[in-house]
Design a binder for these strands. Structure first.
Length: 802
DNA sequence: GTAGCCAGAGTTTTT
DNA sequence: CTCTGGCTAC
């Protein structure tokens, strides 16, 4: 076992505690009394209940600085965990800024998962792993489970692997090993869940791999079964801090309780009103129970809000008041009144998108009589990602720049995952899952049969798939074109693997333990850089060529992504370092070219703030979501309500809530009632914009479309929210006449394309221009059909080889 | 091995 | 409606 002196040296504390002890504490003057109490209460358990926009991160980072400054702890003796890399990065940056120096000495400030990887690498052998284990992502996980399911002859149509993955995840979230799964869960996955879970864990061990859930679970297991290890860490981490405590699951809770169990110097920061991840295992109970778990805990409430106007806060408070299980906080602010929360109803989803597009334009120009608001300062927050479609379509047509946050992540894309599988096989030849992925990508004529032969050979000899393939080739077990291709692949992989290191320069007996395990052999510098190697690898394997020959509209984008991947490699020492980074960090670095309005889900918006926020789709069934209410009843509804609270509190100045009476769902028109949350908005703080008559007051069009009939079917009039809305229809509140929308478009610009020209569009792919209207072109896309788009989103593509 | 067809599904998501 | 996965036919 490694000693803690070693740990100290290994992690390298760069800040001398003594040097800092005498420093003044000007940072305390920046805090309000509550924040200050949270920062200065250093000993014992502290629960910091921090409402939205109350300076939680500031308090947390100042607390770290204060610990360092008062010499209570050295930087590497503070454990500070967050959920996202973004939050961890922000905290690091802010601590560094306050200290006026970088914080390399804070190795234990990170996400739950990254901290667990560090711990697990040091103690892997205690759970039967080697310290260089690989971390599987969801995709690998599913593929592995599929194999097990197939071997068990289970119909994976009726019992999808995804479902099993979900079940296993939920057990891991609750810290159940296969042996601990409660009998009440025995029926999971058609009574085969527990057995398959055990098989899966066994297989992971064989592969020397872990999934995300294991990172926590294994560490908890180690702590529970090796008290000596636990005690060392309890002593080492003198202070423990946790961000977003309301989002912790049972495994994380146990982990924290074990680590802080000695001195109980734990400070948990959270907001029970912003707990929105119950569906993925988070337990609000953890925060509600804190004072029971840690008797004598100091509870600090941060209630002064520095973000939003009083109207916005009042609206948010009104909604969240409908929840029962709350610790209770009352947000207040010194800010000026500002505008009321605006509420508007629309006929359908498309009109909602159109109206919001116009509003955004008006805000941007300052036509509404306020300061011009930049697109970067505006966001549309939706409940479900499919709601984004309507906005994307609309914004594409009117040429409004937007960015979607939290879409498909860079590292989850097919081509990136393929490329990374190549990196993986080359850096660790025994990575079977990676080998499986690339063995026939690009196509090498190695189908099911050839792969089965490789599998069987490998299993018979008890070696990795790559070794199995080598043997199969030698034995001539795979014939014809496939055999030749496989021989070539095996040779190439071996050659590339050799290129990851330089020549052997010495055998080193007492090498320092590092994450790769104790090296016995020292190698000189590789002859080529890892960036060059990556490039060679992708080119020589034929992977780049594969996409160059691909004529689908996505291919150019994929090549672009591969290029970007190679570029990013430059920031790392070697391929291993890069892979380690990627397995834990799924960030999508947004290219920040120009102001854009953000579109994202409410979940993705947590922790963000915008001067102007649009909250569309407030209809019962969509928001609150029907499924959520069906599955978890009142609990689900309360979580939805917290989601509404999170949404409203993202807004600083202008918050606009809207709903549509009709929406196309799966191609079918469906009507809905305004959300029950609308009824919960306190009247005094809401400005109703919906024009009277939008919903038709008595027809006049005969049977020309049955609009009135549909509306009355929708029972819009029976909703209390709607009645109140009608009652309040004021002298003002006229929605913009529909014709107004044309004025938004700048007609000066003229399309530079010609009818018949072949063009490329980022989203729709290739197509042919069929009509030109001002700056817009009607294009018949090969994949997406006929669409009208603004020319600036098109590029000429005569140069494409066909 | 691949194109093309059909059936089925279709919240929220980080690590 | 629109995407995915799996299967069939070449």
């Amino acid at each position: 076992m490694s000693s803690f002196d070693e740990m100290d040296a290994f992690e390298g504390a760069s800040l001398s505690a003594r040097a800092m002890a005498a420093r003044p504490m000007p940072y305390l003057d920046d805090l309000n009394p509550e924040q200050r109490r949270a920062v200065e209460t250093l000993d014992g358990p502290v629960l910091m209940l921090a409402g939205a926009g109350t300076g939680k991160t500031k308090a947390l980072t100042t607390r770290i600085v204060h610990l360092l400054n008062t010499a209570r702890a050295r930087p590497n003796e503070i454990l500070a965990v967050t959920f996202t890399n973004k939050a961890a990065r922000e905290m690091k940056e802010r601590v560094a800024r306050m200290l006026g120096q970088p914080v390399e000495g804070m190795p234990w400030l990170g996400t739950f998962h990254s901290v667990c990887v560090k711990l697990l690498r040091r103690h892997a052998e205690l759970v039967g792993l080697k310290s260089n284990f690989t971390i599987l992502d969801t995709d690998d996980q599913i593929r592995l489970l599929k194999q097990l399911i197939k071997a068990e002859q289970i119909d994976d149509k009726r019992w999808p692997a995804r479902q099993l993955a979900g079940v296993i995840d939920s057990w891991k979230n609750r810290a159940f090993t296969p042996a601990n799964v409660p009998t009440s869960d025995a029926g999971a996955y058609n009574y085969r869940g527990v057995d398959l879970y055990a098989q899966y864990q066994a297989r992971l061990k064989e592969l020397n791999a872990v999934d995300f859930g294991d990172l926590l679970l294994h560490v908890v297991t180690i702590f529970q079964t090796h008290s000596d290890v636990l005690e060392q860490y309890q002593r080492w981490f003198r202070y423990v801090m946790v961000d977003e405590y309301q989002d912790t699951n049972v495994a994380q809770y146990l982990w924290l309780r074990l680590l802080a169990g000695g001195h109980k110097n734990i400070c948990c920061v959270g907001d029970d009103d912003q707990s929105i991840y119950g569906w993925r295992g988070a337990e609000v109970g953890n925060i509600l129970r804190f004072e029971k778990d840690f008797p004598g805990a100091h509870v600090v409430r941060l209630e002064q809000n520095y973000r939003s106007t009083p109207h916005i806060l009042a609206a948010a408070s009104g909604v969240i008041a409908g929840n029962s299980d709350r610790l209770g906080k009352t947000l207040w602010t010194e800010a000026e009144d500002g505008e009321q929360v605006r509420l508007i109803g629309h006929w359908d989803g498309e009109e909602e998108a159109r109206w919001i597009g116009e509003e955004i334009d008006a805000l941007q120009r300052g036509t509404r009589g306020q300061r011009p608001v930049s697109l970067d300062e505006m966001a549309i927050l939706v409940r479900a990602s499919h709601q984004m479609r309507a906005f994307e379509d609309r914004f594409l047509t009117i040429g409004l720049p937007y960015r979607v946050i939290g879409g498909p992540r860079f590292y989850e894309r097919l081509e990136i995952r393929d490329a990374m599988a190549y990196f993986r096989v080359v850096t660790s030849p025994e990575d079977d899952l990676a080998f499986e992925r690339i063995v026939n990508t690009p196509k090498r004529g190695l189908g099911d049969k050839a792969q089965q032969t490789i599998q069987m050979t490998a299993r018979a000899h008890g070696v990795s798939l790559l070794e199995g393939a080598r043997i199969a080739v030698q034995d001539g077990a795979i014939k014809g074109k496939g055999g030749a291709a496989l021989r070539r692949l095996v040779e190439d992989l071996t050659r590339w693997n050799g290129m990851t290191r330089g020549p052997v320069v010495q055998i080193d007996e007492d090498a320092v333990l590092d994450d790769g395990g104790p090296p016995q052999v020292r190698f000189g510098e590789p002859e080529i850089s890892h960036v060059e190697l990556a490039q060679i690898l992708l080119d020589e394997s034929g992977y780049t060529g594969h996409w160059q020959n691909d004529k689908t509209p996505e291919a150019p984008g994929r090549l672009e992504n591969l290029k970007e991947l190679v570029n990013q490699l430059d920031n790392f020492e070697n391929l291993q370092g890069f892979l380690e980074h990627v397995s834990l960090i799924m960030d999508n670095e947004q290219s920040d070219d120009g102001a854009k309005v953000s579109i994202m889900t409410l979940h993705a918006a947590k922790g963000l703030e915008f001067p102007a926020v649009f909250l569309p789709g407030w209809e019962d069934g969509l928001f609150p979501s029907q499924r959520s209410m069906d599955e978890t009843g009142l609990k689900g509804l309360e979580e939805e309500r917290r989601l509404a609270y999170v949404g409203i509190t993202r807004a600083e100045e202008i918050c606009t809530i809207s709903f549509a009476a009709n929406r196309r769902v799966f191609g079918q028109w469906q009507n809905a009632l305004p959300s029950r949350f609308i009824d919960e908005l306190p009247e005094a703080h809401v400005d109703v914009l919906t024009p009277p008559g939008l919903y038709g007051s008595g027809g006049g069009y005969g049977d020309s479309g049955g609009l009135e009939a549909r509306v009355s079917e929708a029972n819009v009039y029976n909703s209390p929210g709607w009645k109140r809305l009608q009652a309040r229809q004021g002298q003002r509140g006229m929605a913009q006449p529909k014709e107004a929308r044309n004025s938004v478009i700048d007609l000066k610009a003229v399309s530079s394309f010609m009818v018949g020209e072949r063009v490329f569009h980022q989203k729709f792919g290739y197509g042919e221009v069929v009509d030109i209207e001002g700056d817009k072109a009607e294009v018949n896309f090969e994949k997406a059909g006929v669409k009208k788009v603004v020319s600036k989103f098109l590029s000429a593509k005569d140069d494409v080889p066909f």
